[in-house]
Nucleic acid binder design. Structure first.
Length: 914
RNA sequence: GGGCACGUAGCUCAGUGGGAGAGCGCUCGCUUCACACGCGAGAGGUCGGUGGUUCGAAACCACCCGUGCCCACCA
């Protein structure tokens, strides 16, 4: 690579990893490489593919995208490196309501409106809008480092995709699953469209519950006591009292209902009430739905404006009187007095009118759930409308079975039951939307006769009468097209090579809020139309909340922009942070975790920089390499083949530890355990590689005259160190791709990208338990001696004369001496045997005896020793207690008992030594 | 009304049957020739409560208290 030596050169002066400088350069190399675009070959079972949850085309990257992008990219990069043909399917969603609302808002600012422009011009404007803003989020994904296949970006409204949508609609219509019906729907006055049940959110609100008296028609049909005056408030007499929080809907009442088993009112059934203000005659009916214990147990029935009442109405064949229109205002049927008023105005007016007539017999403050549109935020107005529906039961059954049988695995699995319960109770889906932006239904009406054509390409004229056809105005719910995402993006309904190579996909990663809205429907549609599940796993990731636990939202001012965070800390840091935060439940955004990621990137950068600069200066190692006349600027890997060539105990130790982190990280990624994958990496780099291994080998990396050992020793160390660094950098790449790619360009002589390099695998032959035990022992000892030094105020740099009075330090005495700043006197590392000790420091397997008290505050030593003794005695007492307990010795597993015995022996030895 | 989670150090969270952990914050010390976005050492916890299972419980079970989320057509 032409710029590599330049960058090698300035490695010396770059004491920090600078994401802002590195990231654009690395991202450009990735995109040029073509690594993210796999040729469609082979079978999906052997390949690895992920379909991105398509972001809204005009949206921008929020924290949820950033988290999910990081998760998917870890998976995709990992499997790509693991050698699978890997495709991350990219695209955006046309997002009907959201996009249309955005453009409408812009039009209003221009002083015009969609109605003024007309449908054709409006749709053209939305496409224009999409051209302008549609690439933002894709560019933002690039900044995150997401390794999507950018060369084959899809859009849910592009031509091929539309063909798939039409094919599915036509098929389902012909199979009788799609039908048209006049039904009560969730009318969203904000988007001026029906929406589905799943797009409704309930909010708790405080309203007034009014009790209203309706008179019974005098003397009619009843055997009850009707002799009294109609205005009597006696419930059993000439009136009923209903309760409502929506008095304005009474104008549409067509019945009064009581529970059939309610003794109090049985005699009223069959009689007639008179609707106040209107005068309509309302039959008193009996229906199981009514709850006798609520209010008076008498219910007004408004079939046109309440879903429950709608059902009652269908059961009893009641009239439907629509008093509220799609514009959210009272209709003509509400009567002259109220027509044209908004719902809220009408409520006040109706209450005032009723009050005037003395019909309000009670008012109380009442808290209840009120439906709101999740899309527009406006209150839902249930009303009857002619819409298109999809019957779901027949689709849901196989989709439920797929999850029950494990062909689709939901991770974490506590969502499984929620999914199955929902599938079991599934209801028809209202799929038509009164919007202009979306897939227009492939339904054509004859203007002359009633004939209806549903087809991908309609006939010129009506097949029944030859009349002219006009297409349905409505478009499909956006989720209808999203439901086809995993296969429509790959060219379905054609049998394309893409489809063969990448469908079914491996995993779908998403937040749980769209489990029903989207995931369930993809499974249904995938099974119905491809005969296969669309993905083997569903991974449900955390929702990131604001640091204070509230929802992250723009309107609350609690949102944190991931791009700001990337600018501040780097993409690696943000990715690491989000992955480290994520868990099986919702989590608060943790700025600390992002900073931890930034620290890790910087640490890895500096560790590699240090190692490379030192290796380059090792006498003999780089000499005579014609490719690199100036070794300090050279890429040392061209002279030294990275390989595990352990010469010292610390080499055996780090190689062994490396194998463990290699195996753990791979397993964690495959188990979707991202936080432990990320944090495990951090621990390895900090607590093993940098804090100990690099510190221990520093003398062996001395350059020039201070150089140690033979040329072979130095070469072996260089090879080992390069092997460890290369493995670590490759291992970490899926989590922190930028810094690792940058370092790879210095660690690898070929100029190849790390993103396309093989993922390192654990080599069990390098696992070395003995080395681990020995090295962990000396680490513990170093830490204890350092603690002692601190407590006796030993000057930081000063050597303290000492002797190791403990076994098991034969290979590590020099390490202990140097890192704990001990002067062990003789070359054997054991220290002066005859000199009396002035202080004892407890270490594993014995003590370190201090031989000189100069300038030390030994009183602290005594305190420390006493504390160590107390701790040891405490532990011994605990273990002894356990072992003297007959139940433990008899019932605990043998190896546990054996372990406790061994521990006791060791602890007693240490006590003795102290 | 039904369901699913959660409660561990000041904060945010790991830890699922055998000696209480991490990051940040805090205290003390270090311009140690990779990194001061650094290094070293420390202080800090009756693991929400009660009861049970077990030789042994932060972990398993029951109940209670507290918090969050999802589903649900009781006006």
């Amino acid at each position: 690579h032409p710029t590599m030596s330049d960058r090698s050169e300035d490695l010396e002066s770059r004491t920090r990893f600078e994401p802002a400088e590195v990231e654009p350069r690395i991202a450009a190399r990735w995109l040029e490489s073509g690594l993210f675009h796999p040729e469609p070959e082979g079978e999906a079972g052997a390949n690895y593919s992920v379909a991105i949850p398509p972001p809204n085309v005009t949206g921008s990257l929020h924290m949820g995208h950033a988290l999910n992008g990081s998760i998917q990219d870890v998976l995709v990069r990992y499997h790509r490196m693991a050698g699978r043909r890997t495709k991350w399917i990219l695209g955006t969603d046309h997002a009907g309501i959201a996009t249309q609302a955005q453009v409408e808002k812009a039009l209003r600012a221009e002083g015009t409106s969609r109605q003024e422009l007309g449908r054709e011009e409006f749709v053209r404007r939305v496409w224009e809008w999409r051209e302008h803003y549609g690439h933002t989020i894709v560019e933002q994904l690039k900044r995150l480092g997401a390794s999507c296949d950018y060369s084959e970006e899809r859009f849910t409204l592009d031509e091929g995709y539309h063909r798939a949508v039409v094919a599915v609609f036509v098929a389902l219509y012909r199979q009788g699953l799609i039908y048209r019906d006049r039904y009560i729907v969730n009318w969203d006055p904000g988007s001026h469209s029906a929406i589905s049940d799943l797009e409704v959110e309930e909010r708790r609100e405080r309203d007034t519950l009014y009790s209203i008296r309706y008179d019974l028609e005098g003397g009619a049909a009843g055997q009850g006591p009707v002799s009294r005056a109609p205005r009597s408030s006696d419930l059993g007499g000439g009136s009923v009292v209903i309760a409502t929080v929506r008095p304005e809907t009474m104008l549409g009442d067509t019945a009064v209902a009581v529970h059939p088993a309610d003794e109090r009112y049985r005699h009223l059934v069959g009689r007639t009430a008179v609707l106040p203000l209107v005068g309509r005659h309302l039959p008193v009916i009996a229906d199981e739905y009514v709850r006798a214990e609520f209010g008076t147990g008498q219910l007004k029935v408004t079939p046109a404006h309440d879903p429950a009442d709608f059902d009652i109405g269908r059961r009893h064949d009641l009239d439907q009187v629509s008093v509220i229109g799609e514009d959210g205002r009272m209709s003509a049927e509400a009567g002259e007095r109220f027509a044209g008023l908004t719902v809220m105005e009408a409520r006040a007016a109706v209450v005032a009118a009723l009050r005037e007539e003395g019909r309000i017999v009670g008012e109380e403050s009442y808290e209840h759930e009120v439906p709101y549109s999740h899309r527009s935020g406006e209150r839902i107005e249930p009303l009857i409308s002619l819409q298109w529906f999809m019957r779901m039961d027949e689709l849901a059954a196989p989709a439920a079975r797929a999850v029950r049988e494990g062909r689709v695995r939901i991770v974490p699995d506590n969502h499984r039951r929620v999914y199955l319960d929902w599938m079991a109770a599934i209801r028809p889906w209202c799929i038509s939307r009164q919007l202009w932006w979306g897939h227009r239904l492939p339904v054509y009406y004859c203007g002359t006769c009633e004939h209806l054509h549903v087809a991908a390409s309609p006939p010129e004229r009506c097949e029944a009468c030859g009349g002219a056809l006009r297409q349905e105005e409505d478009v499909l719910d956006t989720w209808f097209s999203s439901a086809l995402w995993p296969f429509a993006t790959l060219g379905w309904p054609d049998a394309t090579p893409q489809l063969r190579a990448f469908y079914p996909t491996a995993v779908l990663s998403t937040a749980r809020d769209i489990l029903f809205l989207w995931v369930a429907r993809m499974i249904m549609m995938g099974l119905r139309f491809t005969g296969e599940v669309p993905f083997a796993d569903v991974y449900i990731h955390s929702v990131i909340q604001a640091p204070d636990g509230r929802r992250m939202s723009k309107s609350l001012g609690t949102g944190i922009d991931p791009l700001d965070e990337i600018s501040r800390h780097g993409a690696d840091a943000v990715r690491f942070g989000l992955l480290a935060m994520s868990s099986s439940q919702d989590v608060r955004y943790s700025a600390e975790k992002v900073r931890q990621g930034q620290a890790l990137a910087n640490k890895l950068f500096n560790a590699t920089r240090f190692a490379l600069l030192r290796i380059a200066g090792l006498p003999g190692v780089m000499d005579g390499n014609p490719a690199h006349p100036n070794p300090t600027r050279a890429n040392p890997t061209r002279a030294v083949e990275p390989a595990p060539r352990p010469r010292a105990i610390e080499d055996r130790w780090i190689l062994s530890r490396l194998q463990e982190i290699l195996a753990d990280t791979a397993a964690r990624i495959e188990d979707y355990d991202f936080s432990h994958a990320a944090l495990g990496l951090y621990d390895f780099v900090y607590a093993e590689l940098c804090d100990w291994y690099l510190e221990i080998v520093k003398p062996r990396l001395a350059t020039g005259a201070a150089a140690q050992g033979t040329v072979e020793d130095r070469e072996a160390l260089a090879a080992t160190l390069l092997y460890v660094l290369r493995s670590t950098v490759a291992l970490a790449h899926p989590v922190i791709p930028f810094v690792t790619e940058e370092l790879w360009s210095h660690l690898d002589g070929t100029g190849e990208l790390l993103a396309g390099a093989p993922y390192p695998r654990a080599d069990v032959s390098l696992i070395d338990r003995d080395a681990e035990i020995e090295l962990e022992r000396v680490i513990e000892a170093v830490t204890l001696v350092r603690g002692w030094r601190d407590s006796v105020n030993a000057p930081p740099g000063a050597l303290v004369r000492a002797r190791i009075d403990a076994g098991g330090y034969e290979s590590t005495a020099a390490i202990l001496a140097r890192l704990a700043r001990l002067d062990l006197g003789d070359g054997a590392g054991v220290g002066d045997a005859g000199v009396p000790s002035v202080a004892s420091i407890a270490v594993p397997c014995g003590t370190v005896e201090v031989l000189s008290a100069e300038g030390l505050d030994l009183a602290a030593t005594e305190r420390r020793r006493a504390a160590a003794l107390a701790k040891l005695e405490g532990e011994i007492a605990r273990v002894e207690g356990k072992l003297s307990h007959a139940g433990f010795v008899q019932r605990a597993p043998a190896e546990v008992v054996e372990g406790e015995r061994a521990k006791l022996t060791r602890l007693r030895g240490e006590l003795e030594a102290l």
